[in-house]
């Protein structure tokens, strides 16, 4: 995660110049109550999602003694690629000093991105195309959020995560087997959550960009728009069904799952979904308070934090579910061994 952490008080201070007179003042407590977030992280202006991803990958190599020359494939999942070409994962091969014999692809996905990355790499390994792969999920939503959109600033956070998948188990430590997958897509939600003016359709032009010249990042990468009510209903409608679908596919019951690791979208909402599904509170992982919603990085970060607390034991099962921009959703399970 980037070192710059922003408090609710800081967000409010930066929002004040945009606050219309008729609006009533927002307090830090109100912001917290909406999503249970106290601090979120902001990337340096010069850094991209790739840079956060590279740092996460270097940390992974060091902490787990992974030899980079053994990596056979790199999947970079992000909604903030460096270029329309070349593939960001290709650039990362050189940055990270990976072998020139690797395969490297980008996957343009947000909140469901980690599940997609696991699914693609599992398929590549199971079909014996490769023996292992590095999955990097990283996003920098703060660079496309305008300071006036305080609700979006309060939720979203920048981070990168790196995950190593291999046919071979590591000897010291805990391994996890990836289970089956379910997916869902509803492109009719295109306009409910979108980075406007960020690509080929209606690209940013001078007139549009001029509006944002006072903003530090200038919204040069586009501007995030979210119809919060629609996304909120989508999550409440989708997550319980998604959980049931993956449990059914795996032949498991709700009780068989030890940890529910959902995309960390909004703490209050995840808590409510857990209660609604009558899941024991201690099984629903909510780690959002000092991290924020880190889009494609949120599930692996939540997993890593729980791992550091020694929560996972062999035979434990975790259910992972991503949902959001697309609209898109997907789930899988991890069985610790």
């Amino acid at each position: 995660m980037p070192s710059t952490a922003l408090s609710n008080e800081q967000l409010i201070a930066e929002y004040l110049p945009y606050n219309k007179k008729e609006d009533k003042a927002i307090t830090a407590e109100e912001l917290y109550n909406q999503n249970w977030i106290k601090t979120r992280h902001q990337v340096a202006l010069a850094d991209t999602a790739k840079d956060l991803g590279n740092r996460a990958a270097e940390n992974l190599f060091e902490q787990w003694n992974i030899r980079k020359e053994e990596i056979q494939y790199l999947v970079f999942v992000s909604d903030a690629l460096d270029y329309k070409g070349p593939t960001t994962a290709c650039v990362m091969q050189n940055d990270l000093g990976l072998n020139k014999s690797i395969g490297a692809i980008d996957v343009l996905h947000g909140c469901t991105g980690f599940v997609y990355g696991l699914s693609l790499i599992s398929a590549l390994i199971e079909s014996r195309q490769i023996e292992n792969a590095l999955l990097v999920t990283a996003d920098i939503p703060t660079k496309v959020i305008h300071p006036a959109d305080i609700e979006l600033r309060a939720i979203f956070s920048d981070a990168g995560a790196a995950t190593f998948l291999s046919r071979e188990k590591i000897k010291n430590g805990i391994n996890a087997e990836v289970g089956k997958f379910v997916f869902g897509t509803d492109g009719s939600g295109e306009n409910a959550l979108k980075v406007e003016r960020s690509g080929s359709r209606n690209p940013a032009d001078i007139t549009w960009l001029k509006q944002f010249k006072e903003v530090p990042h200038g919204n040069t990468g586009g501007k995030l728009y979210m119809k919060s009510s629609a996304i909120f209903l989508f999550a409440l409608r989708t997550v319980p069904k998604l959980v049931e679908q993956i449990l059914q596919k795996e032949g498991l019951s709700r009780e068989d799952i030890d940890y529910y690791v959902f995309h960390q979208a909004n703490g209050q909402m995840l808590d409510f979904i857990g209660k609604r599904m009558k899941l024991p509170k201690e099984k629903v992982i909510i780690n959002i308070e000092n991290i924020g919603n880190t889009v494609s990085a949120s599930i692996p970060i939540a997993l890593y934090q729980e791992f550091k607390k020694n929560k996972f034991n062999p035979q434990h099962k975790a259910l992972l579910a991503g949902f959001g921009i697309g609209l898109s959703w997907g789930a899988t399970t991890l069985k610790f061994t």
Binding site: K227, S228, S229, A230, F232, L233, L236
Partner: peptide
């Protein structure tokens, strides 16, 4: 209450 507000908005 949030669900009602979201539903009516949507």
């Amino acid at each position: 209450a949030l669900i009602i507000i979201a539903l009516i908005d949507t």
